[in-house]
């Protein structure tokens, strides 16, 4: 078989990353397709070399074909390009229960831009808990340089209850420059209820309290998950590099 054709199929299989018992069948099938195409192109008048290149070109980028052939809905999907999808997904874009990447969408999402139930990242949007440069949460707590949430804690914090360098809120228990509508004594009952539940989060952030809080636990979980995921990403790059250094460049 032609070297170019062989290399192309090698690359498809690198990205497909299938179980060994499937590799041979898939490769044989693609090989048959390409050979038949080359034969037909030669009948049309193409030289063998031109026919090989056209057949490969028409077949598609090895990454597109290879990723398409990857098993779907796996426990773990790690990709160097494109969108990873799995229970645990790691890639430039990641969608999963636990997702990590430049853009991450999941229950636990870690990334430059992360959206999830619990999100960590440069720009973190979440339903319950967000932690990051810009952190916004719909129902829970946001910690960050710029925090927007019912309970917001950060350099600039805005929320129902907020604290931070510059804090705006219905109730602001502390901070540098505070803009608070109520004091503790004048708090309406529903805010008192929120405050009683949020106090530990806020106290923890301002380093007044030393017991384990949800914040500490969640940050620990984040760090605990971050390192294995970085390891998985590195392992995937090593695997690709080992099989074809050109693909890792």
């Amino acid at each position: 078989m032609s070297y170019v054709l062989n290399k192309y199929l090698d690359r498809v299989m690198v990205y497909a990353n299938c179980k060994e018992n499937k590799v041979s069948d898939i490769r044989t099938e693609l090989e048959d397709h390409l050979h038949k195409k080359i034969e037909d192109l030669q009948k049309e008048g193409f030289t063998k070399e031109d026919a090989i290149y056209k057949a490969i070109d028409d077949h598609g980028h090895p990454r597109t074909v290879g990723y398409g052939l990857r098993p779907k809905n796996t426990w773990l999907d790690v990709r160097s390009h494109g969108t990873a999808r799995g229970f645990i997904a790691v890639g430039p874009k990641a969608v999963g229960v636990v997702a990590m990447g430049g853009q991450a969408y999941g229950i636990f999402a870690f990334g430059g831009f992360s959206v999830g139930l619990i999100s960590f990242g440069g720009f973190a949007l979440s339903l319950l808990f967000a932690w990051g440069g810009f952190a916004a949460t719909m129902l829970g707590v946001a910690y960050g340089g710029f925090a927007l949430a019912p309970i917001a804690v950060g350099g600039f914090a805005a929320g129902i209850i907020s604290t931070g360098g510059v804090a705006y809120g219905l109730y602001v228990p502390g901070g540098g420059q505070v803009h608070s509508l109520y004091t503790l004594e004048t708090l309406p009952s529903f805010l008192k209820w929120i405050w009683s539940y949020s106090e530990s989060f806020i106290m923890d952030f301002t380093d007044v309290n030393q017991y384990i809080s949800a914040n500490k636990i969640l940050v620990f979980v984040f760090l605990f998950l971050l390192f294995p995921m970085l390891y998985l990403q590195k392992k995937e790059m090593n695997r690709i590099q080992k099989q074809d250094p050109y693909l890792a460049e």
């Binding site: 498809v12 898939i26 099938e29 693609l30 397709h33 195409k37 028409d58 077949h59 598609g60 980028h61 597109t64 074909v65 398409g68 052939l69 779907k72």
Partner: peptide, 16 residues
């Protein structure tokens, strides 16, 4: 407008 190779993932999915 699809690469010929992209038909195989669909065929395999349908087989599954």
């Amino acid at each position: 407008n699809m690469g010929e190779g992209t038909v195989y993932p669909v065929l395999h999915r349908m087989e599954e």
